[in-house]
């Protein structure tokens, strides 16, 4: 059984950047249907063929549901590279 978003949001507060990066990488691979991908802070949509405006929205929704958090439209549009996503998720946990 999957943990509830409330549990995950609470759990997020105890996670460090490396742990969040690992989880976000797994979510990214699932959403983009990629077997294995190396994501760095500076990775952008230009580096990943499957990462376009639509899959970006799917990725954000998956992250929202996974952690039980919400992003505003402006926040979603401000996310230009993978490191931005990690940083914003960590901010939401704070």
């Amino acid at each position: 059984m999957c943990p509830s978003p409330l549990f995950l949001r609470a759990n997020l507060r105890t996670m460090d950047k490396a742990s969040v990066t690992q989880e976000l990488t797994e979510i990214f691979e699932d959403v983009m249907d990629l077997d294995e991908v190396t994501l760095e802070d500076g990775t952008t949509a230009n580096d990943i063929e499957e990462w376009d405006s639509l899959s970006h929205v799917r990725l954000i929704i998956a992250i929202e549901r996974h952690y039980g958090i919400k992003f505003s439209n402006a926040e979603i549009e401000s996310l230009k590279q993978f490191g931005d996503i990690v940083a914003l998720v960590l901010t939401k946990a704070a």
Binding site: L54, V57, I61, N73
Partner: peptide, 10 residues
């Protein structure tokens, strides 16, 4: 509409 605004629905 921008897909961000509709959460992916075009």
């Amino acid at each position: 509409l921008h897909p961000v605004s509709t959460r992916g629905v075009i």
